[in-house]
Simulated scan of single mutants.
Amino acid sequence: MAKKIVVCGGNGFLGSRICKVAVGRGWDVTSISRSGEPTWSAVTSSPNAPPWSSSVKWQKADILKPETYKPMLNGADAVVHSMGILLEADYKGVITGKESPWSGLSRAFSATKGGSQNPLERKEGEALEPQEKDGQLTYELMNRDSAITLAQEASSQNVPSFVFISAAAGAPMLPKRYITTKRDAESTIASSLPKLRSIFIRPGFLYDSSRLFTMPIAAAGSVGNMVNAMMGGRLSWIAGAAVEKPLKPDLVAEAVVEAIEEGAVKGVVGTSDIEALATKAWRRGML
């Protein structure tokens, strides 16, 4: 029986590929994002919409305003959160002269920032209100609070499965809050919504030839991963994602859809499990 999934962030680099794989299985697929259909040149090597995209419902909604997407969750078998941010927007204030470079760096690497009101105390359907004075989209807001809220709304609609695209680790060039907010989201969702089958996908760096700048980074990451393996993993706590095996987004997308299909998969899904699920999906497709 065909499944129905809703991919929040389905017009992104990974989200669009999750939609593609799900469509390939004959599933009913809805993508939710602020802009609707992707700008294809930003997520693929072509500016033209691929044939499979006509099978996706490209809906516009605001992840911070549950009332804009809640009706779309009704009847879904799984909801995917693929809307985290890698970098915060402090640099914009510096570039425009609204903020000094020192102030911008201090904010970017501060120990804490405001997210929204406590999502666990939020009323059903209540919008998330950014707590930073300038409304900045912080790690706390996008990587943590929006994921918790989406999981809550999915649970209220009796959606059985929830997938959160997390990350394998942080990286030396990123603020520590990038990964701690993702881990906070995982633990909060798992503990506060025990009836929801939560799947936490933790890939390393994602690369693809459609984004040429990712290729040398992935090559360096592959070397780092091999060196780390030779050293028994002793570099992981220092370098984080920089020594985690890079993965192609198509492979991760296959793993996400296979995890949804496999009812026994739940909890943390790391790199080796992602690869195993993708291999299983490939074998399924060969039958």
Rank of each mutant, 00 (worst) to 15 (best):
M1I: 08
V7W: 12
L14V: 10
R17E: 07
K20V: 03
W27Y: 15
T30L: 13
S41I: 14
A49R: 05
A49Y: 04
S53I: 06
V56F: 08
Q59E: 15
D62E: 10
K65M: 08
S82M: 02
A89V: 03
Y91Q: 08
K92N: 05
K92G: 03
V94C: 00
I95T: 06
P101F: 07
G104D: 03
R107L: 06
L120S: 06
K123E: 14
K123T: 00
A127W: 08
L128R: 09
P130Q: 08
K133E: 11
L137V: 01
Y139R: 01
N143F: 12
D145L: 06
D145Y: 01
A147L: 02
Q152R: 15
E153F: 08
S155K: 13
S161I: 05
F162D: 02
F164T: 01
F164H: 11
A171V: 01
R183D: 15
D184R: 15
A190K: 02
S192R: 10
L196C: 07
I199S: 02
Y207E: 02
Y207G: 01
R211H: 12
L212P: 11
M215K: 14
V223D: 01
M226T: 08
N228I: 13
A229W: 13
A241T: 09
P246R: 05
P246Y: 13
K248G: 15
D250F: 04
E254L: 08
V257A: 04
E258K: 14
V265A: 07
K266F: 06
L277Y: 02
T279Q: 14
R283L: 08
R284C: 02
L287H: 10
